[in-house]
Structures are given as structure tokens and as C-alpha cells.
């Protein structure tokens, strides 16, 4: 069972423990990437001696908390309306800073709250360079409402609102965020824990708007085996489907993991029933990945003098 809300799980000002961020007994599905992501975030905060306040819009991530008066989150948490997490976080971070208090204000949002309904709010917070860290756990679907498409859903994926497979490609949110020239934008995978931890460390060392996109497997929406979750996102990184990279100040690109040259994206599609094998053009997919990587490599080669 979750502990009671409002009960002190930690002494004032003490860092998070990984158990403290996401407690046992939460409601997430087995194999949910969000659970792993939260645990890894808790660990990184603990290692850095940091605390945090979570700001969570409507999404699976708030159902995770469970029902009042219990909560699975061992840190101060506010559930906001679907489109408002970055706005509420801006207010909270302002008051934290005015009062010289410690702790990160962290948004934890799904792709619906990020790519779709919350995009204007997020864009405005980025443009203002609010002093917050924004995590999008990207499960490429509206999980909370039972698996509808979002603009992050990849082409060909079947969802309840794209019953014949989605025609459009996934939106490139990292480029959108980088175009805001925010201090830090990065992609993370739960299959690459060291890289994951390094990026959180990097984000914690900076101030201003930091945007981190986690590829977050969702067995329920992806119609995959819970035990396959980590393996699936590993394939996505190693085959080049989900590049791991960082963008500093919207200009300086750094690729963290190159495709290994042997992992085939075919394995990624065949192990998820949201894709139908006969609808996937593997040749075109491989070509798209290659083009994207060549573009990233070109961007990463451009060495720009830092502007202070």
C-alpha cells in the first residue's frame, strides 16, 4: 500500500531516495516504461543530493499517484489540468526562486500533454526560459484514455482512433524544443541507464528550461509483452529509430549513441501488435533512419563558438 499523503517520508531538505520518488504499490501496468523512468529519475536525484516537486498533468503519470488520501509519490506533487503543467510549474518555480528555496520543479507529462494539448503552454514556458525541468515520457499514445493516437504516434501504428494504422509520421518534438534555443534538450532511453543518468546530471547542473524526452514503452498501448519493454526501446536506439542525442542552446548537437549497424528495426515492429507486418515498409524506414542520422551527424559536426 502507498503511504498516506502529507506524511513526511524524509527529513526537511534531505535529498530524494529512489524509493521516495515512486513508492511501491502504484497503479502502473507491468512493464510500463514510466515506472522505470521514475525510478531512474529518483536515483539520479538521490545521487545529486537533490529534491523535487512534481507537476503532472492529466496522463497515466497522475493515475500513478493513486487516490486521495494515499499517494505513490514521495515528493510534493500537484496534478494540473491537461494543458497546464508548464504554466503551473512556472508559478511554483517563481515562488521557489523568490524565496531562495532548494529543489527542482519537474514536469512529468505524457506525449499527449506535450506534443498536443500542452504544446502552446510548453512553448511559452520555453520561450520565457522558465527555470524548470520538463520530462515527457513518450509512450506514443494516449494511455490514460485507453489508447488513442497522439501526434507522437508513429506512422502505421494502430490505435483506437487510427483503426487502420496512422497515416502521418511522428512529430519531431525535440527539434521544436531546440528551436526555442532552450539551454538543454535531450532524448533518453530506459535501455541506456548510464546515458539516462548522465543527462539528468547534465540537466541538474544547468538552470532555465531543460527538456528531456524519454522513449517510454507501454505494453498496454503497444500490445507488446511487458517483459519485452526494455528490449524494445533498446532496439529502437540501436537500430536508429530513436536517436539518443543532446542539443545545447538549440545549436550545439551531440549524438550519444550511434546505431550499432547490426540491429534491425524489423524486430521492433514485429514484436508489437500495434504494427501490422504487411503495412511496414522496412526499406523506407531504414532509409528514413539513415537520413535522420546523417542530418544529426551534420548538425553535430558544426562547431559553434559558445555565446555567453
Amino acid at each position: 500500500m502507498s503511504a498516506t499523503a502529507g506524511k513526511l517520508e524524509q527529513l526537511p531538505g534531505l535529498p530524494c531516495t529512489e524509493e521516495c520518488l515512486l513508492r511501491a504499490g502504484n497503479t502502473n501496468c507491468g512493464g510500463c516504461g514510466m515506472s522505470t523512468g521514475l525510478t531512474m529519475l529518483g536515483r539520479a536525484l538521490r545521487d545529486a543530493g537533490e529534491t523535487c516537486t512534481l507537476v503532472i498533468p492529466a496522463c497515466c503519470g497522475i493515475v500513478t499517484a493513486g487516490a486521495f488520501p494515499t499517494t505513490s509519490y514521495g515528493v510534493p506533487t500537484v496534478a494540473t489540468t491537461f494543458a497546464s503543467a508548464p504554466a503551473v510549474a512556472s508559478g511554483l518555480a517563481s515562488i521557489r526562486d523568490l524565496n531562495g528555496e532548494p529543489g527542482q520543479v519537474i514536469c512529468w507529462a505524457g506525449d499527449g500533454g506535450t506534443y498536443d494539448i500542452g504544446l502552446a503552454t510548453l512553448s511559452a514556458a520555453a520561450e520565457r526560459n522558465e527555470n524548470i525541468i520538463y520530462f515527457c515520457y513518450d509512450n506514443e499514445i494516449y494511455g490514460n484514455t485507453g489508447g488513442q493516437r497522439s501526434s507522437s504516434t508513429p506512422a502505421a501504428a494502430h490505435t483506437t482512433t487510427t483503426p487502420w494504422g496512422k497515416a502521418e509520421d511522428k512529430k519531431d518534438i525535440v527539434s521544436i524544443m531546440a528551436a526555442h534555443r532552450i539551454p538543454y534538450a535531450a532524448t533518453l532511453s530506459i535501455a541506456h541507464p548510464e546515458d539516462f543518468a548522465d543527462k539528468i546530471k547534465q540537466a541538474l547542473s544547468m538552470t532555465g528550461m531543460r527538456f528531456l524526452l524519454i522513449h517510454s514503452p507501454c505494453p498496454t498501448g503497444w500490445k507488446s509483452e511487458p517483459a519485452d519493454s526494455v528490449e524494445l526501446v533498446r532496439i529502437a536506439v540501436n537500430s536508429g529509430l530513436f536517436p539518443l542525442y543532446e542539443v545545447f542552446h538549440g545549436l550545439d548537437y551531440k549524438i550519444n549513441v550511434e546505431p550499432d549497424g547490426t540491429t534491425d528495426p524489423a524486430d521492433y515492429f514485429s514484436r508489437q501488435k500495434r504494427f501490422h507486418p504487411d503495412e511496414i515498409d522496412l526499406e523506407a524506414t531504414r532509409k528514413r533512419c539513415e537520413n535522420r542520422f546523417n542530418q544529426l551527424r551534420a548538425l553535430a559536426r558544426i562547431n559553434l563558438a559558445p555565446v555567453s
Binding site: 500537484v78 504554466a87 503551473v88 511554483l92 517563481s94 515562488i95 511559452a124
Partner: peptide
């Protein structure tokens, strides 16, 4: 002397920021 006015992109967010500030204990 101790305050911040955040010019946002919409009324929805205006109340969002205002609520965030209030949740942090500020007069908003």
C-alpha cells in the same frame, strides 16, 4: 519588492501560473 509577473501566451496559462504561485504560498 518580492514578486513576479509572468506575461503568458493565453488566459488558460495565466490562471495556470497564478495557481502555481498560489500553490507555492504566494499571494496571487
Amino acid at each position: 519588492s518580492k514578486g513576479r509577473v509572468v506575461p503568458v501566451e493565453s488566459e488558460h496559462s495565466a490562471m495556470g501560473v497564478t495557481m502555481g504561485a498560489a500553490l507555492g504560498g504566494a499571494r496571487s
